[in-house]
Simulated assay, not measured.
Amino acid sequence: MFATTRIGAVCVYVSDIARTRAFYGEVLGLPIQSMGDDDSGNDWLQAETAGGVEMLFFKQPAAPGGSPVIIFDLKTGDIAAVIDALEARGTEILSPVSEAPGGWSAEFADPDGHILSVFQAAGLRPA
């Protein structure tokens, strides 16, 4: 199901956005963009790597299973159908399909509790 799906982003939960911006931007030299409010009153950051995989930084406590969260970028199909298929195979769904910055996302866990996510751009709204 995911063999041909590109990893589009790695999401990292951080405690301090300014400190994160300084480290990843000034120390590591990644181009950091402030992406504004995530609807909860927090700014979030985005950094593009040379390989095209985005790094996303959100201020919040680490989620169960920790951070980072690997995000699979769906280019076609229906995100709801993907989540339904995962659930039918016994996968633990951590968050249902919901709006995310720029589209739709859902989270699920691997057998060890590590969080994985799927993202579908807004132009490809789920059915």
Rank of each mutant, 00 (worst) to 15 (best):
55 M>F: 14
17 I>R: 10
62 A>M: 13
123 G>L: 10
122 A>H: 06
67 S>P: 00
74 L>F: 07
103 G>C: 13
119 F>P: 14
5 T>Y: 07
51 G>I: 09
22 A>E: 15
14 V>E: 01
86 L>K: 04
19 R>N: 06
13 Y>Q: 12
55 M>L: 15
34 S>H: 09
22 A>V: 08
18 A>W: 00
54 E>M: 14
118 V>C: 12
5 T>Q: 13
113 G>N: 08
54 E>Q: 15
105 S>A: 04
110 D>K: 02
2 F>W: 14
38 D>N: 15
41 G>K: 07
58 F>S: 07
103 G>S: 13
56 L>Q: 15
28 L>P: 01
101 P>R: 06
72 F>R: 14
14 V>G: 02
18 A>M: 05
10 V>Y: 03
91 T>L: 05
12 V>E: 06
66 G>I: 01
12 V>F: 06
41 G>M: 13
84 D>I: 13
109 A>T: 00
60 Q>E: 11
40 S>R: 07
65 G>Q: 03
35 M>Q: 12
15 S>N: 03
16 D>N: 11
120 Q>H: 07
126 P>S: 06
117 S>L: 05
45 L>V: 15
55 M>T: 12
115 I>D: 10
80 A>I: 05
10 V>S: 02
102 G>F: 03
3 A>S: 03
38 D>S: 06
8 G>N: 02
26 E>H: 00
22 A>K: 08
50 A>C: 12
31 P>N: 12
3 A>K: 08
88 A>E: 12
74 L>H: 04
49 T>W: 14
72 F>N: 15
74 L>T: 05
48 E>L: 12
112 D>G: 08
1 M>N: 10
22 A>N: 04
83 I>A: 12
97 V>E: 02
29 G>T: 12
16 D>V: 12
61 P>K: 15
4 T>M: 08
59 K>H: 08
9 A>T: 01
18 A>T: 04
116 L>I: 03
18 A>C: 00
27 V>E: 03
29 G>K: 09
46 Q>W: 05
97 V>T: 04
32 I>E: 09
11 C>L: 09
10 V>M: 01
78 D>E: 09
108 F>Y: 01
126 P>W: 14
111 P>E: 01
70 I>L: 08
97 V>R: 00
69 V>T: 15
49 T>E: 15
111 P>Y: 05
